Structure formats: C-alpha cells, structure tokens
Computed example of a mutant assay.
Amino acid sequence: MSLTNEMLQALVGIESEVTKGADEVCRPMIRHFCEVMEDANPLYHDEEYAKETRYGGIIAPPTQVQVYTMNPLWPKVQREKNTMEHLVELLREHGYSSIVATEQVQEYFEPMKVGDEISYTISVKEISPLKQTARGPGYFSTFLYTFTNQRNEVVCKQSFTILSYKAQVQE
C-alpha cells in the first residue's frame, strides 16, 4: 500500500498517554547539568541566594526539562508507542528511514523545583506534504511535547521538528 497524505494526517492531534519521568528533580542532576553547560546562575546552586528570590529555593535550569523524562538506558522501559514513534515507524516502512532534527523551540511556564516529578505528553502537531530537499524527498513532522509537574502545572511546551527522508545516493 502506498503512503498517502490521509494516512499521515490521521496521526495529527492525537495526544499520547502521560509518560512520567524516572527521576525527580534533584540537586546532583542540576549540578551535573550546570557543570557541563558551565552555567553559574546562583538560582541553580546557591541555597541562600535562591531562598531570597521569588522561587524560595533552588530551581533547575529550564533547558534541563527533558533530562527528567528520558528513559533509562537499562533496563529497557516497556511501554506503548506514542504518536511520534508510530509516525516515524510508518515513514520508515515506506522508505523514509533517514532522520535529521531541524528545529526545537521551548517555552517555559513554571520553574522546576527540587523534588518535582516531571511528566510529558506528546502529539503530532503537523506534517508537511512531501518535499524535495537536498538530502532527498521527505516529510517534515512537528511534534508538541507538554511537560508538567506533579501538580499538573505546565512547566514547558516544546515543539520539535524532524525531516524523515529517503537518502539520495551521491554519484
């Protein structure tokens, strides 16, 4: 069966189940992240300073949001595939097996505080018509992640766009 626009568009707007992160927001992970990024913001490491701010204590860098929801490398987590994974699999089955990330945008709402438990849902926001690119023919797919804490407050919304394409052989 040929891949049709209707097959792709049927996945747009379907939101996944909530996926809870494996780890709560904690000072050691904040410290490791700040060390790697060389981020000296006192909100992330100086308890006395952070207590005097509107946050009332240490917070995590907002760009760290995905760290708390990444699946462990081992043991492998068993769960239902989300809409993004279904779309990538459908495209791969039709020969669009090469993938490159093209854009990521994050918008932050509530701070992540030590002890917070971060979860997310994901949905397919949009899928382009078939495009001819320098890499080969393919589809641009944009996904919307919504990250929340245990109080169901939105912490971050992230759009993430990939190009799934049929690689062209260069002669």
Rank of each mutant, 00 (worst) to 15 (best):
Arg54Lys: 11
Cys34Gly: 09
Ile30Asn: 12
Thr146Leu: 07
Tyr120Glu: 00
Ser128Gly: 08
Ser16Met: 07
Glu171Trp: 04
Arg54Asn: 04
Glu103Ile: 02
Thr69Asp: 05
Glu93His: 11
Asn82Ala: 02
Leu73Thr: 13
Ala101Pro: 11
Ile14Gly: 03
Tyr55Trp: 11
Thr148Val: 13
Gln78Pro: 09
Val12His: 02
Ser159Glu: 14
His94Asn: 13
Leu8Trp: 12
Thr83Tyr: 00
Gln66Tyr: 05
Thr161Cys: 01
Met70Pro: 03
Tyr165Ala: 04
Thr161Arg: 06
Glu153Lys: 15
Lys131Arg: 14
Glu24Gln: 15
Glu126Asn: 13
Ser159Cys: 09
Pro42Lys: 14
Pro61Val: 09
Leu11Ser: 10
Gln168Arg: 14
Val36Glu: 08
Glu117Arg: 05
Tyr68Met: 02
Met37Gly: 05
Ser128Phe: 00
Glu6Trp: 01
Ala40Gly: 11
Ala134His: 10
Asn41Ser: 13
Ile59His: 01
Ser2Pro: 15
Arg79Asp: 00
Val169Tyr: 10
Glu35Cys: 08
Met1Gly: 13
Lys20Glu: 06
Met7Cys: 01
Ser164Arg: 10
Val155Leu: 08
His45Glu: 12
Glu153Ser: 06
Asp23Pro: 12
Asp23Gln: 12
Asn5His: 10
Gln150Asp: 06
Thr83Val: 04
Thr4Leu: 05
Glu24Met: 04
Thr146Arg: 02
Trp74Cys: 07
Val105Cys: 08
Ser164His: 10
Ser164Tyr: 01
Ala101Gln: 13
Arg135Pro: 04
Met112Arg: 05
Gln132Ile: 07
Gly138Arg: 01
Val124Thr: 06
Ser141Trp: 01
Cys156Met: 04
Val105Asp: 11
Tyr96Ile: 10
Leu91His: 02
Glu47Ser: 15
Cys34Lys: 07
Ile58Leu: 02
Pro75Ala: 00
Gln106Tyr: 01
Asn71Arg: 09
Glu47Arg: 06
Met29Trp: 13
Ser98Ile: 04
Asp46Thr: 04
Thr133Val: 02
His86Lys: 11
Glu153His: 07
Tyr44Ser: 13
